[in-house]
Nucleic acid binder design. Structure first.
Lengths: 270, 270
DNA sequence: TAGATTGTTAATCGATTAACAATC
DNA sequence: TAGATTGTTAATCGATTAACAATC
């Protein structure tokens, strides 16, 4: 996707796969721990175990960065820490704004891993006058009105959105307009951004739903309903009839079934 | 990966790809919004736009669930909400424990999207006597000692870990031992679990680092250091020499470089 | 019947993995 | 030199996408 030979000529490092990029922080964390224990070198096998991946994947990942290992020996911990840090852009300082200082914004402002790794909270912003002026993590909460001036004066390129879902797109638009080009979105909202802006999302509800899916599988696949047994080959009733049927099922599904090892009530999301 | 024909015979739905499972919650969210606006039917094109994916992917995803659409018409919103909810296991109620009631645990306990979608906070747990007894989101914080009895008596199968990193594995072990088989980990720790236990992780620091990587790319790839230009073809000095060189570079890299459009200080993660 | 839209096919792309030659 | 471990190859697997026949 990303194909941005903006600067000078493209070097090998340009083509690092997304899946690899997403694992570099894991390797870096494991390496940092080794570094703190003054471990001088580490093999792909050991490091992979510490990072929770297999060693073939790790070596493949590192091969995109260059040949930083020594055959028969392993990797120099300090050197790798430095190379990965540089590859990830962590040899710079990245000022970040957090917009929406509710419970979650508060938690993030206080998050330790934030300050390390080169990320610095440039400002906390909120639209609520009752919150503005309060202090979180030693920083004053400032009003949304200051968003543009802060982003510009402090060269903020990363914004974190922890607003209620209804405000997220609007906040996102303002951040982008002001010059932010990377957004980490904690609001359960699909954000629309122009080309060149990256959005990553963190969504508790989605993670839980994925876990629930697998949990249900593990629980043994008993019927959760009256007639689910041969459900894929269901008859094709016209839409409205189906909807009515669904409603009936929903109404009927309250607290009926009992799973083998559990006894959970049937509940549909609101 | 997951191949668990635990219950009776395997039906088509067994083989839903992970990537599809991860998108079902997105579709469900978009459908719920349509449902609330009383929209009766939706095309793959419209729904895909609302969920932020392309329509071919959406149709492919839905094809794993069954044939729930009507050619020439689209999908019945209510019916799809029901089918996806059931597929994800959301027609049941899932009691969840949150362990570690710091800022983040607090925020999660208060998170609205938690209570909807069938997830219910069964208990908040903390090891710190100073926190135990306090109230968060209307629930008392209980002591870790009660973990086992709560998990067993309330049939909790999902645990959320929001402890400091040092405590995460230990908490994880206790959860698993008590019977929890799905874990959502917010601590920046690689958790080791037995087969049959699912772990998903949410890691702010990793997300920010991935954004920083792309941000750096966008910024145009100027040298962040003295000699990075032909860095992939670097000479292969033996480990210790490399490490020393790296340290030199680290020491030297403080506040030197100036990017084209930014002026950030060079900082290495702690 | 004509128009619309699904469900599926097949091609392509990207990620994972095992195996092993290269080489320290 | 012998043992260890990297870096790379090639096979496999899974995910994405465009296109279109099926069919409402």
């Amino acid at each position: 996707m990303r194909r941005t030979p903006v600067g000078r000529q493209t070097r090998a490092a340009r083509g690092i796969p997304e899946a690899t990029v997403a694992r570099l922080p894991l390797y870096l964390r494991a390496l940092t721990a080794l570094s703190e224990r003054s471990v001088p070198t580490v093999s792909s096998e050991e490091l992979a175990a510490a990072a929770g991946v297999n060693s073939a994947k790790l070596r493949k990942d590192f091969s995109y960065l260059g040949s930083y290992g020594t055959r028969g020996v392993g990797y120099d911990v300090e050197y790798l820490v430095y190379q990965i840090s540089r590859e990830l852009g962590l040899t710079q300082d990245w000022p970040v704004v957090i917009v929406g200082i509710g419970n979650l914004g508060h938690a993030l402002a206080n998050y330790g891993g934030f300050a390390s790794r080169g990320f610095r909270v440039a400002a906390l912003l909120d639209a609520d006058p009752a919150v503005v002026g309060a202090t979180a993590a030693g920083l004053p909460v400032r009003h949304m009105d200051e968003l543009e001036s802060i982003v510009e004066s402090q060269q903020v390129s990363i914004g974190v959105i922890t607003t209620p879902p209804g405000a997220a797109q609007q906040v996102c638009d303002r951040l982008v307009e002001a010059g932010v080009t990377s957004i980490l979105n904690f609001a359960p909202t699909v954000l629309t951004v122009p080309d060149g802006v990256d959005v990553r999302k963190v969504d508790l509800s989605i993670e839980l739903q994925i876990l629930a899916f697998h949990e249900q599988r593990k629980a043994g696949e008993e019927p959760e309903d009256e007639e689910p047994a041969e459900e894929p080959v269901r008859e094709r009733a016209p839409g409205p009839v189906r909807a009515a049927a669904a409603k009936l099922r929903r109404a009927a599904s309250g607290g009926k079934e009992t799973k083998g090892e559990t006894d959970r009530q049937a509940v549909l999301p609101a």
